[in-house]
Amino acid sequence: MKTVQCMLGLILLAIANCPHSIAADYQVGERVGNTKAAPKANASYRVLDWDDMIPADWDPMQAIKGLDLDKLDDADPRAIEALEQMRSAWNDAPVVPGLNSQRVQIPGFVVPLDMNGTKIREFLLVPYFGACIHVPPPPSNQVIHVILPKILPKDQQKTIDAAAQEYGPVSVSGTLETVASNTSMGFAGYRIKADRFAPYQIKGR
């Protein structure tokens, strides 16, 4: 009888070991939470919050401010215009230039870009889950293009690959670069040349 139990156990083990888990464990729109609460891995990195990446004086909602939304219909041309303005504000969201070439640590959700075999080579880091599929994407100053170092320890690569499979969270440390909108890119944004990665657990889960 024992043998039978052992066999069943091993079958379950083999199936559970199967690397692909289906359906992510996060709710759409779920955010990484208070990043400062995360354990500090290394004193040489500044722990960054997603809000730190938005200039203090930037307000995408400006267009809506003057409107009395209660009195407006969805199809009202004024409402549509305000929405369009808000969208273009999101598209041209400015970056915080002071963050350039700072060594930072920030957690976020992974959106895979390039893969070599099953290994992730480049990805985008976003502040909430489902940014790529279910919900409108974040403004451009809330997206970080993460470039992995050529050689990465195996366990860290595994951490990223696992996170990418379910668009899950990961903590990234590295040098942040800002690209201003007046450059040839025609687009403002952030980029991290990453040094190290760590699994990230959302608090209270």
């Binding site: 994407p137 690209v179 040839s184 890119m185 687009f187 980029r191």
Partner: peptide, 12 residues
């Protein structure tokens, strides 16, 4: 794209 981080914007 010129900047990979712009992908969401062009996609939309």
């Amino acid at each position: 794209l010129k900047s990979r981080a712009a992908v969401f914007r062009v996609q939309r």
